[in-house]
């Protein structure tokens, strides 16, 4: 066993010879630029695009969450233009102003919205989806990684759920779950209403999202399996490892880097996954399957848009996910993975 584990470690370790030297000494800015310009040049395009389109609006949103800005009180003055000519501008009497942490207090104490119950639903939704995505995706990727007759046909068929635009399949699933005309009830011969209680509705939307998300995990893991050198498996076999031992000692460690990425990002994406719940259950019954992001949308984006409350939801979601990521990283570090 020990031989196997040791054999695994080297390829998963990137060499950082060049980099280590660079960081070991404190250098002036000029030498830093001289030494790192190519690395910086390689990341600059991404950084610029992300900074303009995501980071800047995000910082704006963090500021908005400390004010009482809505669509109605945002402008300093409201101008009423007349098509026949003429224009009347009046100062906005309740122009938005700084309110400190009021929005956070309102949301967290339940004066506005239902933060905590939506948070609970979000957790169930996220973890259920990610666990099924990953385990099913891993299983299928392992099956498809073997030499096998018709492998590329299976592969293409299995990625189809990813290839259909999500909102179309969401409508199709909604129809499948329909009480009166749905396929599931027809097959079961029942008149069960899938959406009249929260547990059932939540199960239904999770099934839809698992169906949608497995192909992505499967493809990513398939790519990861390819980077595990075959020699490791051979060495393991020679050592007399069982299939299960090979899986836990060669496959899983070899997939660690890919798995860490897709689980982390999968969690983040699922946490904020909007369209499925919005289309399939519409958050029903009576708000029972509302997750934070759909709740925020309903709360703040219907009618006069409440930018500050929306931003507050956003910042709270961001904080939860940062906390999760920090914990996740800590966990990975304990396992020996560094990033």
């Amino acid at each position: 066993m020990t031989t196997v584990t040791e054999a695994v470690t080297p390829p998963a370790r990137p060499s950082k010879g060049r980099g280590r030297r660079a960081s070991s000494s404190r250098t002036s800015l000029r030498t830093a630029v001289g030494r790192h310009w190519y690395a910086w040049a390689m990341v600059t395009p991404v950084v610029v695009v992300l900074a303009i389109l995501v980071l800047y609006p995000m910082v704006q949103a963090i500021w908005l969450s400390l004010t009482n800005t809505t669509e109605a009180n945002q402008a300093e003055q409201i101008c009423q233009l007349s098509l026949g000519g003429g224009q009347v501008c009046t100062p906005n009497p309740n122009h938005a102003h700084f309110v400190g942490l009021d929005n956070y207090v309102k949301l967290l104490t339940g004066q506005i919205g239902r933060f905590w119950s939506q948070f609970g639903i979000t957790l169930i939704w996220t973890f259920a989806c990610v666990i099924f995505h990953y385990t099913i995706g891993l299983g299928l990727a392992m099956l498809l990684n073997r030499p096998l007759r018709g492998r590329s046909v299976y592969r293409i068929v299995l990625i189809l759920p990813w290839a259909v635009p999500a909102f179309v399949s969401a409508f199709a699933w909604k129809f499948i779950f329909d009480r009166d005309a749905g396929l599931i009830n027809k097959l079961l011969g029942s008149t069960n209403d899938w959406f009249d209680s929260t547990p059932k509705a939540l199960t239904a939307v999770i099934i839809v999202n698992v169906w949608l998300g497995v192909p992505f995990m499967m493809v990513a893991i398939l790519g990861g399996l390819q980077s595990i050198p075959a020699e490791l498996y051979e060495a393991a076999s020679i050592d007399g490892a069982t299939a299960w031992q090979r899986f836990t000692n060669v496959t899983l460690p070899g997939l660690r880097s890919v798995s860490a990425t897709i689980i982390l990002l999968g969690t983040i994406w699922t946490f904020n996954m909007f369209p499925i719940i919005y289309i399939v259950s519409r958050g029903g019954p009576a708000g029972g399957t509302e997750i934070l992001v759909t709740g925020a949308f309903k709360e703040a984006f219907e009618g006069i848009r409440n930018y500050s409350i929306a931003a507050t939801y956003g910042v709270l979601i961001l904080s939860v996910l940062i906390a999760y990521s920090v914990g996740y990283r800590y966990f990975l570090r304990k396992q020996g993975e560094v990033w």
Partner: peptide, 26 residues
């Protein structure tokens, strides 16, 4: 992957953080 340049760790975090704020709100 290859270079240990200053700003690397924050960059990795930035990538993550950009995925965290719900786009519907932005």
């Amino acid at each position: 992957s290859r270079f240990n340049f200053p700003g690397k760790r924050p960059l990795m975090w930035t990538f993550l953080v950009t995925q965290m704020f719900p786009v519907a709100i932005l």
